[in-house]
Amino acid sequence: MNDAAPVCRFLYEVGYLKRSPRVGWEVGGVAGRIESVAEHSFRTAILAHLIATAEGGNPDRAATLGLYHDVPETRIGDIPYVGRRYLTAAEPETIVKDQTSSMPETISAPIRAAIAEFEAGETIEAVCARDADKLECLLQAREYQIAGATDIDAWIESSKRAVRTQTGRRLAEEALVTHPGDWWRAAQGSR
């Protein structure tokens, strides 16, 4: 790579997502520390990989879509669902084109393609990644619920309704009856 500066600028920009809260939770009354966009994207990528594996898609591609899906939020922020009724934001494909315009084409083209594929939602990998995005929200809502948040049932129900894959629907159902701390209790018992 001859000019690494544009790539480094992009990496610093993406790093901003580690400090960008998912503001919808604030609207829903979640108090205290709120997850960042980057934290959401991490678990979304893990979920996308798992769902695509079970659904017969390419898990690496689905994880890539999940990892990159919110990168455009560095430029427009995390607009809560209720705000989308009143705001018109640039399309994610337009934003990522600007974000990557000075980077080498060999690096920027796959990033732009990932955003476009996720937004189109037509491939099995995109369907799995979009399900992962909704399931991650459902899981986070359950974690906030167990921590005492009382006004997030709408997040749980809308997330559950949006899931399209059989694997995603099974995971959503199980997430509603599995306590978020069960993994820790199970790990303690395995010693």
Rank of each mutant, 00 (worst) to 15 (best):
G56K: 00
K97F: 07
A109P: 06
A63N: 06
G168I: 00
Y68W: 15
G57V: 01
L87Q: 07
I79N: 02
V71H: 02
Y144L: 02
G56H: 03
I156K: 05
F118Y: 12
P59D: 11
W155M: 12
E174K: 09
T74F: 00
D60S: 09
D78H: 13
Q166H: 14
I51F: 00
N58H: 08
P92L: 12
E173R: 15
K134C: 13
A90H: 14
G148P: 08
A175L: 12
E136C: 14
S108P: 05
P92H: 13
A48T: 01
F118I: 02
A120V: 08
R130P: 03
A116T: 14
C137N: 11
I146P: 03
A147Y: 04
L50V: 05
L87K: 06
N58Q: 13
A175I: 09
R61M: 11
L67D: 06
G56D: 02
P110G: 01
R75E: 04
V96H: 00
A126L: 09
A62L: 08
E73F: 03
D70H: 11
T53R: 13
E93A: 15
T64W: 09
A109L: 12
V127N: 04
L138D: 03
D98N: 12
Q99T: 05
E91M: 10
A149V: 09
Q140C: 10
D133K: 14
T106K: 11
S159N: 06
A109E: 13
I107E: 11
E173V: 08
R85K: 15
S159D: 06
R169G: 02
H69A: 10
V163T: 01
L87P: 03
R164I: 11
I152F: 05
R85I: 07
V96W: 00
K160I: 05
T100A: 05
H40F: 07
G148Y: 04
A141T: 12
T106M: 11
P110E: 06
L87S: 08
A113Q: 14
G168K: 00
T106P: 04
T150I: 08
E119F: 02
T150N: 14
W155A: 15
R130T: 14
A48D: 02
L67S: 08
V127H: 03
T74L: 01
T165E: 06
I79H: 00
S101R: 15
I79A: 08
L135R: 09
Q140W: 01
G168V: 00
A154L: 11
P104T: 13
A172Q: 04
P72R: 05
D131N: 07
K97D: 13
I76M: 01
D151N: 15
T44S: 12
G83M: 13
V163Q: 03
